[in-house]
Design a protein around this nucleic acid. Structure first.
Lengths: 132, 132
DNA sequence: CAGTATCCCGCATGATACTG
DNA sequence: CAGTATCATGCGGGATACTG
């Protein structure tokens, strides 16, 4: 969204730039899916529950543009298109997986935090400091 | 659309659940900001360029609900509210930081991939222009 | 099969004003 | 200071139909 690519971009912007792609609904799932090897369009679609044709295409284009995946067209009839992680994509898989693993390991803590928060919803102030 | 929280949830859903919070525009920046220590509302706001009062509040509430940060109110006049990472938040900081570091280290690769991709698009446009 | 092309809706985000 | 309340809006994302 911000096309300002000055050499003095703050790390903030840089991080946001990368994270924003991660943040969308499907990119991470696609990358994870392709982590097992090259797949055809339909195979990716089947592997990800709930993704629409349009959003999968959009997601794949974004990932390809950023260099995370490669797209190979076989002009047979019917058409055949395969996607595969690039070296960059494989590299990204590492911190992504770490985050994913963290999510799996700590999901219960988040869930119980949510339950507690929602249970205390009727309280006005969640943490009143003792006025020293 | 309340997700069932059975112990047999697909990792897919679990990961998406956590990532979706990461994915929003400001959460990561807030967590990073609080990584340096407890801060007041205004201090966080100042440390993050471009965030509105409303979105910062919304983000902080979400992070508090999920147990990543704690909120402490000092009922002085004027009011004083401090935010701080919880243990869970500190734990999350680790994979987040790894991803952030990756972003900083590899941003140039993404940028050049984008330039190449967009450059190829220009080539196609030129070819079409010849026909016209 | 692997997309494009449209249409449409809801929510995330933002701007502004007000308050304890 | 640290928020709510309200209104406006852009676009993410789904449904559907069409195409090479």
């Amino acid at each position: 969204m911000k096309p300002t690519h000055s050499p003095f971009d703050s790390p903030c912007k840089t991080v946001t730039d990368i994270i924003s792609l991660i943040g969308d609904k499907w990119s991470v799932l696609v990358i994870k899916s392709l982590g097992d090897g090259r797949l055809r369009f339909t195979e990716i679609k089947r592997s990800i529950d709930g993704v629409s044709q349009k959003m999968l295409t959009t997601t794949l284009r974004g990932l390809e543009r950023d260099g995370y995946i490669s797209r190979t067209v076989y002009p047979t009839v019917p058409m055949r298109v395969e996607y595969e992680l690039t070296d960059l994509g494989v590299d990204l898989l590492e911190p992504i997986s770490a985050l994913g693993q963290w999510a799996v390991d700590n999901h219960h803590r988040v869930v119980s935090a949510r339950r507690r928060y929602d249970g205390d919803a009727d309280m006005e102030n969640r943490a009143l400091a003792v006025h020293a």
